[in-house]
């Protein structure tokens, strides 16, 4: 049974105090998206053996969602971080690479100027 430290309140909570929320950093595709985009958003999950990013809610606690970087085989936790980020933070990437030198991010983070938050893209 896991323990994770909630980055929102600093409490180290055990699994029974948390609610799982599946894969992190999904990009929402809404109306106007192609069938392929929407299918991948709704159904395609990485389910990797090794480094993974997950959503957890501190349900029996501060009630906030947060993200965890974790090894699905060894259950090693590389770090937890705020949910309000479209990609794992540089600190988390560094923490993973310190333990798993061969691991590389599989996303291409757009440069800062062109980033739109999901919120903005939905609300014009």
């Amino acid at each position: 049974m896991l323990t994770l430290t909630c980055p929102c309140c600093g409490i180290s909570a055990e699994e029974t105090e948390l609610a799982p929320g599946g894969e992190a950093h999904l990009k929402r595709f809404g109306p106007g998206s192609s069938d392929d985009e929407f299918e991948s958003y709704l159904f395609a999950r990485k389910n990797p053996k090794g480094v993974h990013f997950e959503r957890w809610r501190h349900a029996y606690g501060c009630g906030k969602w947060f993200l965890a970087a974790r090894d699905t085989v060894t259950l090693e936790v590389f770090g937890t971080y705020k949910a309000q980020t479209p990609y794992p933070t540089p600190e988390i990437v560094a923490a993973i690479q310190a333990k798993r030198p061969d691991w590389k991010p599989d996303w291409h983070q757009p440069s800062v100027n062109t980033t739109t938050t999901p919120a903005e893209s939905l609300t014009e």
Binding site: G21, R57, A59, K64, W65, A83, Q84, A119, T123
Partner: peptide, 12 residues
């Protein structure tokens, strides 16, 4: 929980 999920994780 559904509302909080969308508020915290998508439209924060």
């Amino acid at each position: 929980a559904h509302m909080e999920d969308w508020l915290q994780c998508e439209w924060w």
